[in-house]
Computed example of a mutant assay.
Amino acid sequence: MTTLWKRFKYAFEADLHNVFDKKEQKNPIAMLNQYIREAEKQTEKTGIWIERQSQLKLQLEKEHQEAQEMLVKRTSQMELANQTNEGELIDFAQSEVTAYTNRKEVLQASILRTTEELFGLEQKYEEMKHKVKDMKVRQLQLMGKENVTRAHHQMDRMLQPESSNNGDKRLAAFDEMEQYIDRLGQRIEKEHGVSSMERRLAMLEKNEEPKHEVV
C-alpha cells in the first residue's frame, strides 16, 4: 500500500506540474481553475481507495472474529475428544485448533498493518482536502483581484480617457458629449424661463381684467 501511495503521489505531482507548464502563459485564473479540477479528481480517486481499504479492514476483522469463534469451538471439542481416548478424533481436533490459532494470528497481524496503513492514508487524504480548500480560497482571492483590476480599468477609461488607447478620439467624443449636454441644458433653461414668463404675464392679465359691477 505504501508503494501504491508513492506511485499515486508522484503521478499526482507530475499531472499538476504538467498543467502548470501548459498554462503558464495563459490566464492565471483559468490555470488555477484547471489545477483545482485536477486536484479534486485525484482527491476523489484517493477517497475511493481509502474506502476500499476500509472495507478490506472490515473483512479482515470479520474473518478474525470467525476464526476466534471456531478456535473456541474446536478447543472445547478437543477437550471432549481427549476424554474419549479416540486417537483419530483427538488428532483432528488438535489440527483444527492449530489451524485456527495460526489463522487468528495471521489475521491479527494483517489487521494491525492494515489499520496503520489506513490511518496514514486518511491523514494524507485530509491533507489533500485541505490543499484543495486552500486552492479554492486562493481562487476567490485571485478572482477578487481580477474583478478589482477590471473595475479600475473600466473606470479609468471613463474618468481618464486620455490615458487609454485612442485617447484623442475618446477626448473628442467626451468634448462632443459635454457640448451636447451644455446645449441641451441651455435650451431647457431657456424654455423654462420662457414658460415662467408666460405664466407670470397670464396671471398679470387675469388680475387686471375689469370687474363688472353688479346692478
Rank of each mutant, 00 (worst) to 15 (best):
Q83E: 15
Y100S: 10
E176I: 10
G47D: 15
L159H: 06
T46W: 09
Q59K: 14
A202W: 00
Y180E: 12
E51H: 13
E116H: 10
R103G: 09
A11Y: 04
E189C: 02
E205M: 07
V194E: 03
V72R: 10
R200N: 02
I29W: 07
Q65A: 13
V97G: 02
E96M: 11
E126F: 00
I111V: 01
H153K: 05
F20V: 14
V106T: 12
T84S: 14
E79H: 13
E24H: 11
Y125G: 11
V137Q: 15
F119V: 08
L121V: 01
S196G: 04
V194M: 05
N102E: 14
D21Y: 04
I188Y: 05
N166Y: 12
R170Y: 10
L118R: 08
D156M: 08
K57P: 02
K6P: 02
K145N: 13
H17V: 05
G167W: 03
T43S: 12
S110T: 01
L71D: 03
I111F: 00
L58M: 14
L60V: 00
L4I: 06
N147I: 11
G47A: 15
S195E: 02
T3G: 07
F12I: 02
R157L: 12
L32F: 08
A93Y: 03
E66K: 13
E38I: 13
E51T: 14
L58K: 15
Q34A: 12
V214R: 01
N165C: 10
V19K: 03
I50S: 02
F12L: 03
S110M: 05
Q25H: 13
K169H: 05
T114F: 00
L159E: 06
E208M: 06
Q186W: 05
W49H: 01
R187S: 00
L71N: 01
E88D: 14
S110F: 04
R187I: 00
V148G: 03
A172V: 12
N82W: 12
M78F: 09
R7C: 01
N85H: 05
E205T: 02
P28G: 04
T84R: 06
N82V: 11
L58Y: 08
F92T: 12
A11H: 08
L32C: 10
L118D: 00
E162Y: 09
N82I: 05
E209I: 01
M70S: 12
R74S: 07
L121N: 04
K169C: 02
E116A: 10
A81P: 09
E205R: 01
G167L: 04
V194A: 04
Q53C: 09
M143K: 15
T149Q: 10
G47K: 00
G185K: 06
R157P: 00
G193T: 05
M135I: 07
K145T: 04
